[in-house]
Amino acid sequence: MTLETIESEIEANVPGCVLEIVSNPSPSGQHSLRIDPAHAVAIATFLRDAEPLRLDYCSNVTGVDWPGKEISEKVKIKKLVDGVEQEVEEVRKTQTLGHLEVVYHLYSMEKKHGPVILRMSTEDRADRVHLPSLTPVWRSAEFQEREIFDLYGVIFDGHPDLRRILMWDGFQDHPMRRDYVEPDDFEYEPTPHDEVLERARQHRTIMGVQ
């Protein structure tokens, strides 16, 4: 079954859902389906139970961090220069918000096919990080979604037990995000070089040791 037929099957059976095929240019050819969070649970239930698919095995749940980018574009605007109106080129910078993404790899143990890949994105990386949990549909997502909550900070609504799983409870950061800064406890080698030397230097200036 191709991803296009799966898409039209879902559209026929889950009214109002918004789907988008994300094509994958690599030789693996594993294209994926971006689903909208509002209909995620209905889509997941359909994929699990509908006869030709029966994707009963949610194998892998992954979080991916896509930080915001600074996009600079050149725009021509009219400006008064020395009293004369001139067309001046200016660089305008816009900061995108970025988003967090969750990827589900689905297989069928009954029909022995797969993977069908679903993706969901949050709206940004700060406050609007809620996504529906698919643990009620596939129990196997329980620990993996907890891990994404812990390491990426995605809040899964409807998860039965959303706590930190790998880090301790009082920990405040989300270390798998790409902008995470780890505590300064680098090992100081006797002969530091490259990155380690740089870190050792920074540390020394902070500590005020000569």
Partner: peptide, 18 residues
Amino acid sequence: PKPGEAYAHIEAPKGDLG
């Protein structure tokens, strides 16, 4: 490798390792 993604899994002794 060129941009893109891949998922592969095997039957490890403990189970499905991907």
